[in-house]
């Protein structure tokens, strides 16, 4: 009886607390597109860093609501590759070296070509890409969860 009552108490409090704690983890990915710039902003043959804010951040998120992406426009047609800045090895931010035509990672030395394929170092796969579309002369990019090379790979 005592054990039963104790277990019931634990359950009564435990279910809401566990639910509260893990609920954010199961939030659906929003199907939102965010404008990151006019088409004219991206010249053919360039790779550009774009920054935008999470469309629905928590009020206290501060700078962490910001996201950066690398946008590559290979030619003059409005065809893009939109890369996450995260290295596919362990997530550090890769930097585009415009003269060397390479992305370099500062953590463990991952290197990628302009098209995101691996040029050297430990990365197990090419840079993650985002879905994009052109709308009203602007490049729109889909918001997305943190991409990983493990079980959670998109």
């Amino acid at each position: 009886m005592t054990i039963g009552l104790t277990a019931a108490m634990a359950g009564l409090v435990g279910v809401p607390i566990v639910g509260y704690l893990i609920a954010p983890l199961f939030e659906r990915e929003q199907d939102t597109y965010v404008a990151v710039g006019d088409l004219a902003h991206f010249a053919g043959g360039t790779t550009t860093l774009v920054k935008f804010e999470d469309p629905s951040p928590l009020a206290w998120a501060g700078q962490t609501a910001n996201t950066a992406l690398w946008v590559r426009r290979a030619g003059d047609e409005p065809v893009f590759q939109v890369f996450n800045v995260n290295c596919t090895h362990l997530g550090c931010p890769v930097d585009w070296r415009s003269d060397a035509h390479l992305f370099l990672c500062p953590c463990h030395g991952g290197v990628y070509y302009a098209d995101g394929t691996v040029a050297g170092g430990p990365p197990p796969r090419p840079l993650f890409q985002r879905e994009w579309r052109v709308d009203g002369g602007k490049l729109m990019v889909k918001t997305q969860r943190l991409p990983t090379s493990g079980g959670g790979a998109p």
Binding site: I22, P24, L25, E29, D54, W60, A61, T64, A65, R145
Partner: peptide, 11 residues
């Protein structure tokens, strides 16, 4: 998701 408490490092 548990480490970042959601979809991304954020609020």
């Amino acid at each position: 998701s548990l480490v970042v408490a959601g979809q991304n490092v954020g609020g």
